[in-house]
């Protein structure tokens, strides 16, 4: 493992893309930042601009309107970039997959590196998922 790889893993900056979600995953993701879970001890911070992002966290089902935005955002992020699909909706479309505006789960639009299922996944699940990904 080279130095850059090591540093990359030690310093993941998250950009949060909320699709057509029910908010739960987003809130639980924010919860990860807060005192009980504190992802900053792994060097993770939430960033406001996708230009700074190392990880694109996608939560919620993706509807027609989000779809193009998701693609744009994915393109606008600097590579290397990890993509995490959070929640049942992010992984599969979940409860909203039958809706008339549904445009496919995240991985039908952009390549996904990590799935964190759950409705919503607990923050612990999120952390565990990240750790798994980093040890891959």
């Amino acid at each position: 493992m080279g130095l850059t790889d090591y540093c990359f893993k030690k310093s993941l900056w998250l950009f949060h893309f909320a699709g057509a979600s029910c908010n739960n995953c987003d809130i639980e993701l924010l919860d990860c930042l807060t005192p009980r879970y504190d992802v900053e001890r792994f060097g993770m911070v939430l960033v406001g601009s996708v230009r700074h992002a190392d990880v694109l966290v996608v939560s919620g089902s993706i509807n027609q309107k989000c779809r193009s935005r998701l693609l744009t955002i994915y393109e606008q992020a600097p590579k290397p970039l990890l993509v995490i699909a959070v929640g049942a909706c992010g992984c599969t479309g979940g409860i909203f997959a039958e809706g008339n505006t549904f445009a496919g789960p995240v991985d039908s639009i952009i390549p996904v590196d990590l799935y964190i299922p759950g409705c919503p996944p607990k923050p612990e699940a999120f952390l565990a998922g990240i750790v798994k990904l980093l040890n891959k």
Partner: peptide, 26 residues
């Protein structure tokens, strides 16, 4: 415009069940 999930039609009792469910779907 409402959407309901066909796959979760059966009795989902709690979130854990859903987690399992979505894992299987995944």
């Amino acid at each position: 415009a409402s959407v309901y999930d066909a796959r979760t039609r059966n009795k989902i009792l709690d979130g854990t069940g859903l987690i399992r469910m979505s894992q299987e779907q995944t």
